Simulated assay, not measured.
Amino acid sequence: MADSSFDIVSKVDHQEAENALNQARKEVEQRYDFKGTDASIEWSGEQILIKANSEERAKAVLDVFQTKLIKRGISLKSLESGEPFASGKEYRIVSTLKDGISSENAKKIGKIIRDEGPKGVKSQIQGDELRVQSKSRDDLQAVIALLKGSDLDIDLQFINYR
């Protein structure tokens, strides 16, 4: 019997992220407590740029954006935000969406599978994803449960389960 396998990935649906950003921008433009604060949120290349005239307002815009991401099913583990910094008279927060599993996180996940997972389960790094193989599908289910229960700082999806 052939080995069963699945892939571990960390992907962000960019269309959903775009929709969340547009919703956050509309809410910031319409909300009364943002009037006169020059608050805005927009794409700046691959990054998300949040601007406001005070640190509290910039954090509030980030909070609105995080709420929209959650409603659209995007984990906040995928969002990496910097600290607010002053640029002239405005405060800025630069955020990025993490896509793919970095090599150090892939090694960390592989180590968790080797140390705590069932015997006979093999994992290999393939670019920015991990392939997990085993003869037993129950062992693969146990690995998925193990990884969902572990406290990793990235959002994981399990795809191509065969």
Rank of each mutant, 00 (worst) to 15 (best):
R25P: 06
W43Q: 00
I74P: 00
D33T: 08
Y32G: 07
E16W: 03
T37W: 03
E16K: 15
L130W: 11
L76I: 14
K108S: 11
E80M: 09
Y91D: 00
N19W: 00
S95Y: 02
L49T: 02
A58G: 09
R114N: 02
R31A: 15
D63C: 06
E56S: 08
R114I: 12
E29G: 05
N105W: 10
A60W: 00
R92D: 02
I113Y: 10
F65Q: 04
Q30K: 14
Y91V: 01
K108H: 13
V61T: 07
Q126I: 12
V94M: 07
K26V: 13
K68G: 05
T67R: 15
Y91G: 04
I41G: 07
K26I: 12
K108C: 05
A20E: 06
Q133A: 12
F34A: 05
K119Q: 02
L62V: 02
F85Y: 15
S10H: 07
S95F: 00
A17P: 01
A86V: 08
A58Y: 03
I8T: 03
L97N: 08
E116H: 12
I70E: 07
E55C: 04
Q23W: 10
S10T: 08
V121F: 10
V64T: 11
K135Q: 13
S54W: 08
S123V: 14
K89A: 08
N105M: 14
I125R: 11
D33M: 10
S123I: 15
H14C: 06
I48Y: 03
I112E: 02
Q47P: 09
I113N: 11
I125M: 05
N19F: 00
S95Q: 00
E55Y: 00
F34T: 04
K77W: 07
K89G: 05
T37R: 14
G82A: 02
R131C: 01
R92E: 10
D33C: 07
V28N: 03
E16Y: 10
T96G: 14
E90Y: 14
D128M: 09
K89M: 08
E29L: 10
P84F: 02
S134K: 12
E104I: 04
K68Y: 02
K35Y: 10
L49K: 04
F65T: 02
A106N: 06
S78G: 03
A52W: 04
G82M: 00
Q126E: 13
S40F: 01
P118C: 15
I70H: 01
D128G: 07
Q23L: 13
E129W: 13
V12D: 00
A106C: 04
R72H: 13
G127T: 03
K51G: 06
Y91L: 01
A60Y: 01
K68W: 03
R114H: 09
S123E: 12
Q133D: 10
W43F: 04
I41F: 03
S40L: 09
N53P: 01
E129I: 11
F65D: 01
E116D: 10
S78R: 02
A20I: 11
V61D: 05
G45M: 07
K122A: 14
K26E: 15
K35N: 12
K122G: 12
K68N: 09
I8P: 08
S44C: 01
L130M: 14
Q124T: 13
G100W: 11
R131K: 15
Q15H: 06
I101P: 09
R31Q: 14
A52E: 02
D99R: 11
K35V: 09
